[in-house]
Amino acid sequence: MMRHELIRIWAFALRNLLMASRNIFFVFELTFWPTVGVLSIGLMTRFLRLSPADTSFVLIGTVALSTVQVCQLDVAYAVLYDVWSKSMKHQFLAPIAVRHLTLGSWLVGIARGLVVFALLAGLAWWAFDFNPFRIGGGALAVFLLGCFLTAWIVGVLVCALVMLFGTRAEASAWATVNLVLVLSGIYYPVSLLPGPVAAVASAIPLTYFLDAFRSHFGFASGFASPLARGFGLSAAYILAAHWGLRAALDRTRRSGLLLKMSE
């Protein structure tokens, strides 16, 4: 039984991997845009004569943004590939659960996210004297896990939106994650946000992972036990997002959208 579970998860991981390896645009997604992001933001910190500490604050956000974005897109591709190829009904004709497709796609997202992180961290170190590796492997791994969990949640949410609204919700694959990143204090402390927005920010796990990561670079933490909060929220959202995706899938089976997306 466990073997069958793993095989089904691997099916989606391998599919995403094969699709990514055969499309030149995915290479751009992995290298070009993240590199442009770090270079432009890094040069802006030079222009504004930011201190090394402030530069690291901003660059942490830039690196996190690309890492989360790339990983999240892979999870969204779990459904988008089938929408684009109109093959949706074939996979849901098989005895699979939504966890198989999101988990398999997430694993590829993690691999691609790690590549992006390594590339950007190396670039930030070389070009702007910001070394994210100096805090040690443990803290780095926890931060990356937080980024990837956030990406998983957002990706599953996008899958649910595409299930509910079809191709009309396609843009959410790129829009949703940016909204989440803006709200979680990507380039600034969330204390700067107005009251109600700050309350929303405090409900986003990435807010806490960024806070905890930045504390290793000398910034005072704005929250008590940020990692516990971050992982607690992540666990709750992952369960809720999968429940939502399952509910969306059930709805497409009732509305007929599952068939429409396969025509």
Partner: peptide, 8 residues
């Protein structure tokens, strides 16, 4: 009129 992933 089945359709599958284009580059597989």
């Amino acid at each position: 009129n089945a359709s599958f992933l284009w580059s597989l």
